[in-house]
Design a protein around this nucleic acid. Structure first.
Length: 354
DNA sequence: GTCCGGAACT
DNA sequence: AGTTCAGGAC
């Protein structure tokens, strides 16, 4: 039924089931960091200057990354934190911009429309956790700037976390007026950590939240970045979340939000492969680039919730329920991963699969 | 490749 | 008890 952006939504591949919360144990309410809120950021990895070509992404919207970050107090190091735009992501972005004229850079797999329709049908008859929502609904009641910040936080917190837990955490932050960069910047990290618990990796995420809040304040005037590269430069925000945030917060589709489900399913369907080969792609990023080569842009946003839900209910990572799938006739991997007990032995035997 | 912090499988 | 899963940092 409804398929919203899915959001960072339950990235949980686990079949539904509930049971998460657990009382906040005092060992988690560590206060060791409360005094270190303004700690000095350690110098991070150097930007891997592939400085040759000028990067032009999202013209008109983006802020020019490196230069503007240089010389800013405190957050300076973040400018160099990540490799901004690997060669592949660069290419993909360019592709996305020209997609209307090129339409499809690569050859679409046969029957992809039928497969997609089949999956849509299956999805409409089964409920998947992904339907319950994630960061796309975060802060929908807030004014735009605050809503965007809430979306960003929702995306950050949602990974490895059930929607319900994530939503509850966002709710607690809101109750404590901690959904603005100003407030988060002022709050103790330990306070934030306790409020967001038990989202996955809450300690790291509390740290990221503090850093992100400061960056938003200093560099983006209290808003969140609006370009892909600037989002990627935030700690804790990688390709998956960056594209998701762009979609939801800015309604800007620069790329496909590829998570582990999309990655796995596209490979099973034979929709993507390593460039120039027939081998499976080895990372979600590689999958994203390959998928963007041929999938019409109109499908870029919908593909994520669609495949995530499908991956949670039928095309599961382990023992996919091929018997319940309506597109097995079009799937090269159908019935080939019927995990049998001794998965160990099995795995080594089938190192390579069609 | 390991870590993070835990849930949910086998 | 051991393994798998998941996004990102390092």
């Amino acid at each position: 039924m409804n398929r919203q952006i899915h959001g960072a939504v339950s990235s949980s591949s686990k079949p539904i089931s509930s049971k998460t919360q657990r009382p906040l144990s005092d060992s988690n309410s560590a206060n060791g960091a409360s005094g270190s809120v303004t700690r000095v950021y350690t110098r991070k990895k150097r930007l891997k200057q592939e400085a040759s070509e000028p990067l032009e992404i999202n013209p008109g919207k983006g802020v020019n990354t490196h230069k503007q970050l240089r010389g800013l107090p405190d957050i300076e190091d973040f400018a160099y934190k990540k490799t901004i735009g690997s060669p592949s992501s660069r290419r993909s972005t360019e592709t996305s911009i020209t997609v209307t004229s090129v339409k499809t850079a690569g050859n679409p797999p046969e029957n992809w429309v039928k497969v997609l329709e089949g999956i849509r049908q299956m999805r409409s008859s089964e409920d998947a956790p992904v339907d319950s929502m994630g960061c796309d609904k975060a802060g929908s009641f807030l004014p735009p700037t605050e809503r965007r910040f809430a979306v960003l936080l929702g995306a950050l917190l949602s990974s490895q976390t059930k929607d319900q837990v994530n939503n509850a955490a966002i709710h607690r932050l809101h109750q404590n007026s901690l959904l603005t960069p100003e407030a988060v910047d002022k709050a103790d990290e330990s306070t934030i950590r306790e409020l967001i618990y038990p989202v996955g990796f809450y300690t790291r995420k509390a740290t990221y939240m503090k850093k992100i809040a400061r960056i938003c304040l200093v560099k983006y005037n209290g808003d969140i970045p609006s370009s892909l590269d600037d989002l990627l430069s935030l700690p804790g925000i990688g390709p998956k979340m960056a594209h998701l945030i762009l979609h939801i917060a800015w309604n800007d589709v620069q790329g496909i939000c590829v998570d582990t489900h999309v990655h796995r399913i596209c490979n099973r369907l034979g929709w993507v492969s390593r460039p120039g080969t027939k081998q499976k792609t080895t990372s979600p990023e590689e999958t994203r680039v390959a998928l963007q080569q041929w999938l019409p842009k109109e499908e870029w946003v919908a593909i994520n919730p669609l495949l995530v839900g499908f991956g949670q209910t039928i095309c599961t990572p382990l023992r996919p329920r091929c018997e319940a799938c309506s597109v097995t006739k079009l799937c090269p991997a159908a019935f080939k991963e019927t995990s049998s007990p001794s998965s160990k032995l099995k795995k080594s035997n089938r190192s390579k699969e069609p």
